[in-house]
Amino acid sequence: MKKLLLTFFVVLCFAFVSFAAEILLEEPVIVTSAGQSPGALQFTVVAKMVSLDYKFDKLYKAEDVDMSQFKTFVIVVGASGKGLGAAGIDIEVEINRVLALAREAKDNGLKIVICNLEGASRRGESSDKIVTTLAPLASVYFVKSDANEDGFFTNLSEEAGVPMATFEMTVGLKDVLAQYFGK
């Protein structure tokens, strides 16, 4: 385990990330999936590397969460037919669930992070619909670079005047989290 973690850290020294932390985010953090891909779980694996104080459930519902207990809401976007099937929900139900959570977060003063962690493999009609629906509530975007080759996230970021951090490899998210959370 130590060997693997060490090698991750070595690689991170060379990982290409592109951002400037224009805002600072605070803990504790609440994390959920939007689309039920495993990206949200991957987010938590990286979050552990920087000892982020977070709570995660891929199916949080607004009525079951006390948003006042948190400072930041991370929404990891990725539509997965397998994941939605496993959860027994369709994409519209999923969007409404996450939108309700995001509105609740906004009302409680949380910063909202929209994260694409799985790159181009999670771009498509359903994933893009989730992002554009949530975009008016975004405080910052964390985006794997190959998901933004058409400038989709750049345009949303610039139109709303909110910052965006990009990273080349999934594990590169660690630097982004460290920077934005002051780790």
């Binding site: 090698t7 690689v11 994941g83 099937g85 027994g88 799985e118 493999s121 999934t170």
Partner: peptide, 24 residues
């Protein structure tokens, strides 16, 4: 998740992670 992050970081191949569909 950890395995595919290692493969991407050290070998440059990006893989997609999927969860079993409980209904299939």
């Amino acid at each position: 998740a950890v395995a595919i992050m290692e493969i991407e970081a050290f070998y440059g191949v990006s893989m997609k992670l999927e969860e079993s569909n409980l209904g299939y």
